[in-house]
Simulated assay, not measured.
Amino acid sequence: MLRRAAALALLTALALPVAAKEAPRRVVSMNLCTDQIAMQLAAPGQLHSVSWIARDPRSSAMAEEALAYPANHGRAEEIWLMKPDLVLSGTFTARASVEMLKRLGTRVVEVPPAYSLDDIPDRIRTIGAALGREAEARAMIARFEARLTALRAEVGHRPSAAIYYANGYTTGDRTLAGEILITAGFDNIAGDTMGGHLPLELLAMADPDAIITGTPYPGASRSEEVLAHPVVEALRARAASRAVTDSDWICGTPYVLKAIDDLAAFRKGLE
């Protein structure tokens, strides 16, 4: 009897670290994309701070919601002084700060960017697990996948489109932006690529039915001068042109569904 009781006590002791693991109570996010998923998943009072860029409506789809949280600038010193028990970071975010926080003993969960629509549920799942909000993450994923399935309906005619950004940069089908374009019912002239620089000559020869550009930033930028080039202006005069809301496209969050919906409405307007 005594031996059985000792064995039971040992098993209980071994199980304690797993059972006693609690959800973090003070979370700091230092990446725009983890900011937005965390704001949607975190329990009340659990998320303490988000990155400063989460407040910028040009980049963040949740700029207004971000105002409810103190902003951080990704510096190790300021984040450590916030005394978080969990830091959410991107895999390319402020590497020096991330490594310093790890050396100081702070738990850091690094979340890679979403490179496709299929990556988004995994990113939600990762952050939900880190926050101890698995049920909420599963519910968000279910809503996302159901809506995405509805948006992926067959399209009879697919107009051609070019995504054209500053410095003449474009993105192909093997990117999140490219998949948004395809799902909305367009054919991307960049094709099955990651993208890259698209010379004006090739853009003119492709003669797309639509040109999708980003919203210009305030002030003057030499990188954006190409968007006002006479060749681009001539193409815009013949084709439909649309300046997209970049904040819905930048991160792999459920807000990409709004980007798809808006582009699909634009396509239907062309028809």
Rank of each mutant, 00 (worst) to 15 (best):
residue 23 A to C: 02
residue 169 Y to V: 15
residue 123 R to I: 11
residue 17 P to C: 12
residue 11 L to G: 10
residue 24 P to K: 02
residue 97 S to N: 05
residue 9 A to S: 03
residue 171 T to R: 12
residue 20 A to S: 09
residue 230 P to Q: 11
residue 1 M to L: 06
residue 199 P to V: 06
residue 255 Y to V: 03
residue 191 G to V: 02
residue 44 P to V: 07
residue 34 T to Y: 10
residue 134 E to K: 13
residue 237 A to G: 10
residue 54 A to L: 08
residue 168 G to E: 09
residue 176 L to C: 03
residue 90 G to R: 05
residue 191 G to K: 00
residue 32 L to Q: 11
residue 41 L to R: 07
residue 53 I to Y: 10
residue 169 Y to P: 02
residue 200 L to F: 10
residue 236 R to N: 04
residue 171 T to L: 15
residue 47 L to P: 02
residue 203 L to V: 01
residue 205 M to T: 11
residue 183 T to P: 05
residue 218 P to G: 04
residue 84 P to M: 06
residue 201 E to S: 11
residue 244 V to D: 03
residue 165 Y to N: 15
residue 173 D to N: 15
residue 163 I to G: 06
residue 51 S to R: 09
residue 76 A to V: 11
residue 27 V to H: 02
residue 140 M to L: 15
residue 201 E to V: 06
residue 86 L to V: 04
residue 84 P to Y: 00
residue 62 M to Y: 06
residue 213 T to W: 00
residue 125 R to F: 07
residue 117 L to E: 04
residue 228 A to D: 13
residue 29 S to F: 01
residue 239 A to H: 01
residue 139 A to C: 06
residue 173 D to Y: 01
residue 167 N to W: 13
residue 90 G to E: 01
residue 157 H to L: 14
residue 16 L to V: 02
residue 126 T to K: 15
residue 111 V to A: 12
residue 203 L to N: 04
residue 197 H to S: 09
residue 235 L to D: 00
residue 137 A to V: 10
residue 166 A to M: 07
residue 70 P to G: 10
residue 102 K to I: 05
residue 107 R to T: 15
residue 257 L to R: 03
residue 262 D to M: 06
residue 45 G to T: 09
residue 139 A to M: 08
residue 229 H to V: 03
residue 73 H to N: 08
residue 227 L to F: 03
residue 228 A to P: 00
residue 224 E to V: 01
residue 6 A to K: 11
